[in-house]
Design a protein around this nucleic acid. Structure first.
Lengths: 343, 343
DNA sequence: TTGAAAGCGCTAACAA
DNA sequence: TTGTTAGCGCTTTCAA
C-alpha cells in the first residue's frame, strides 16, 4: 500500500523530449513562447511518463500554494445538526475548485486548537483563509492577523477593524419578518434568539427590537440555533406569556422545534400563533407542519462569495492595496421573506 | 491585506543564534545531538524571529506532507441534509489533528470532478487519502489506485481487491433490528432501503432478507436515506400492504419521515406499526414522536479509525508490507440495538 | 556534537 | 524561441 515508485521529474521529461527543463516547465504551465512541434513533443513525453508536477517544489519558488484554509470555529456540536455549515462549505468548495484551489479544512474543537490553527496559518501552507461560524470574543481573528494571511470572514465579526466579511442582512431580514407578523394583525410578537455569542443572532435580535420598540422583555428568550433549544424557548415563552400570538425564531431549526411545542400545547399555527423562521433551510422549512414562512438567506452563495473575494485579493500579487482601491470590501447580502403557511 | 513581510528562514535563525543551519534544523525538528546551551540559544532565536518552518521546502526533501486528503464522493445533495457526513468528518479531523496532520477536503460534485481529484492525488500533495460516501460503480477507486496513494475507504467498496476499509456491521445490525420486530410478535415487517447504489444500503437489505427469508416483495421499497424519501416509501408501503405491522428503515432520517406518514395516516406507533431505524443519529432519533428504536453505529468512531489505520500505514515508511504482516486490514465495527419507544 | 555542502524539483531571470 | 543558471528553504549525509 505504500507508495514506492518515484515520480518522474521535469528533468526526466526534458530528457525524453530532448529539450531543456525550462521548455518543459513552459509547456506544463501553459506559457506561450514554445513553438508547436516542440510543445507537442513535450506533451507527449509528459503523457508517456505520467508526469505530474511536484507541488512542493513549485511552491518553494512561486510562494503560491493554490490552497485556501477554511477554519470552522465551531466548538459546539452544533455543526453536526445544522446544515448551515455544510451548505456554506459546499459553496466555498465549488468556488475554490472552479479556480483550481484546494480546500484545507481546519476544524477547531476547543481553545487548544487555536494555537495549532495559528501555527498552521503562519506556516505559509496556504495562500489565504476563510473563517466561518466565528463566535464573539474568539481569539482566532487575532491569531490570524498575526499570521499575516489574507482572510475573509463568513458573518460579521464582533469587532471593527479592516477585516473583510460576507454576511446576510440579518437585521433587515429580522425587521421584515417582524413587520410581516405585525401586518398580519399580531401584536404580541415573541422572539427566540439564536446563540447570542454569534453576531448573526445579535443582529436578528436588534432587528426584532427595531420594530418592536416597546416589547415586553418576557417576549424574548435566548435559544441556541438548535431544534431542542427552540422547543425549550417556546415552552418558556408560553409559560411567561400565554397570550402571545406570533413568534419570530432566529432560524428554521428553532422554528421547527417551536412548531412542535405549539402543536403539543394545542395552539393552531398560524391561527392562534403565527411563526416565522430564518434561513429558508430546505427541505426543513418546506416540511414543517405547517410549512414555514421564513427569511431566506443564500447560504451557499455566501460561501461562494467569500471564496471569490479572497481569490480576487490573492490575484493582485504584489500590487499594494492602495493602487487598486483598498482591496476587497465586505458584502452584506439581502434577504427575502418567503411566504408559506405558518404566518 | 496581502502578505508582504517575508518570513524569516532557517538561515536567519542560524545567523542570529550564531550557529549553522544544520544545527537549527536539528533543534527545530527535535532530533537530539545538540548540546543544551546551544539548543537554548537556537530556541530563543526562533522565538525572537517568530520563525515557522516553510513546509514546501521541507516536503521537497522529506517527501512527506503531513497532510491527508478526504474525498467525499457525494454527487447528491444528501450531504446537506444528512449529519452522517459531518460526523464522520469530525472523527477524521480529530484523529488527524491529534497526529499533526492536515485535512485537505476534496468534495466531488459530479463526474467531472473525478479527474481533478485524481490529478490532485497523483500530484503528491498528500501522504494518503480517506474516501467516504463512495457509490457503487464509482470510478474513483480506480483513479486512486492509479495515483498510488495509500487509501482507506469509509464503508465497504463494491469490489474486492486488497483495499482497506472501515465499516459497520450493516448486515448484522439489520438482522438484529428485524429479529427485534419479530420478537415483538410482528409478522408483516416492511423495509425501506437506503440508496441502493451504496453498499451500506445493500448490506442492510441483505440483513433484512436473511431474517425475512420469504418476505412479500411488496414489503420492500427503495428509499434514498432522506426524510422525504422515507415519507414517499412509507406511503407506498401502506398503499401496497395496508396490513403491515412493522417497518425497518435503512436510516433514522427515513424512519423519521415514515413516522410522520404513519401519524398522518392515523396509525399508532408502536401499537399498530412498530418502527426501527438505523444510525442512532442524535438528536434526531431521540426527538422523533415517539422516540426511535434504532441500530446504533459509531459514526465518529469510524472516522477516527479510518484516520488511524491510514496514519499507521503511513508511518511504516519504507518498510515493505510483507515485513509487518501485510499492512492494515479492514475493520467491521459492531452495532447495537437501542431500545426506545417506537418498537 | 557541530558545520559544510549537496541537492530535493521547480521557476524565472538572463543569455544566446 | 530556447537553453543555462541561479536559487527557493530545507534536510541530510559526510567530515571535522
Amino acid at each position: 500500500m505504500n507508495e514506492t515508485v518515484p515520480r518522474p521529474t521535469l528533468e526526466a521529461v526534458a530528457a525524453r523530449a530532448g529539450v531543456s527543463r525550462a521548455t518543459v516547465s513552459r509547456v506544463v504551465n501553459g506559457s506561450d513562447g514554445v513553438r508547436e512541434p516542440l510543445a507537442e513533443r513535450v506533451r507527449q513525453a509528459v503523457e508517456e511518463l505520467g508526469y505530474v508536477p511536484n507541488q512542493a517544489a513549485r511552491s518553494l519558488v512561486t510562494k503560491r500554494h493554490d490552497a485556501v484554509a477554511v477554519v470552522v470555529a465551531e466548538p459546539e456540536t452544533r455543526v453536526f445538526a445544522d446544515p448551515f455549515f455544510a451548505r456554506q462549505l459546499r459553496g466555498i468548495s465549488k468556488e475554490l475548485t472552479a479556480h483550481d484551489n484546494q480546500l484545507v479544512l481546519l476544524l477547531t474543537e476547543d481553545r487548544d486548537d487555536h494555537a495549532r490553527v495559528g501555527r498552521y496559518l503562519a506556516g505559509g501552507h496556504v495562500d489565504g483563509a476563510l473563517v466561518i461560524s466565528l463566535h464573539i470574543d474568539d481569539p482566532l481573528p487575532g491569531l490570524i492577523q498575526r499570521a499575516g494571511v489574507p482572510t475573509v470572514f463568513g458573518g460579521r465579526p464582533d469587532f471593527n477593524g479592516g477585516v473583510v466579511y460576507v454576511d446576510s442582512d440579518n437585521r433587515g431580514g429580522a425587521r421584515d419578518a417582524v413587520r410581516h407578523l405585525l401586518g398580519l394583525g399580531r401584536s404580541r410578537v415573541a422572539h427566540i434568539t439564536g446563540a447570542l455569542d454569534q453576531t448573526s443572532a445579535v443582529d436578528r435580535l436588534d432587528g426584532f427590537r427595531d420594530v418592536m420598540t416597546d416589547a415586553d422583555p418576557r417576549l424574548v428568550v435566548e435559544g441556541d440555533f438548535t431544534p431542542a433549544g427552540g422547543e425549550r424557548a417556546m415552552r418558556e415563552l408560553l409559560d411567561r406569556r400565554p397570550d402571545l400570538d406570533a413568534v419570530f425564531a432566529g432560524n428554521d431549526l428553532m422554528a421547527a422545534g417551536a412548531l412542535r411545542v405549539l402543536r403539543e400545547r394545542g395552539r393552531r399555527v398560524p391561527d392562534d400563533v403565527a411563526v416565522v423562521g430564518f434561513d429558508d433551510m430546505l427541505p426543513i422549512a418546506e416540511q414543517t407542519e405547517p410549512p414555514l414562512t421564513t427569511v431566506r438567506q443564500d447560504i451557499e452563495g455566501m460561501g461562494r462569495l467569500m471564496a471569490r473575494l479572497l481569490l480576487r485579493d490573492l490575484d493582485r500579487t504584489g500590487v499594494p492595496d492602495e493602487a487598486v482601491g483598498g482591496g476587497p470590501s465586505s458584502v452584506v447580502l439581502p434577504t427575502t421573506l418567503i411566504h408559506r403557511a405558518s404566518a
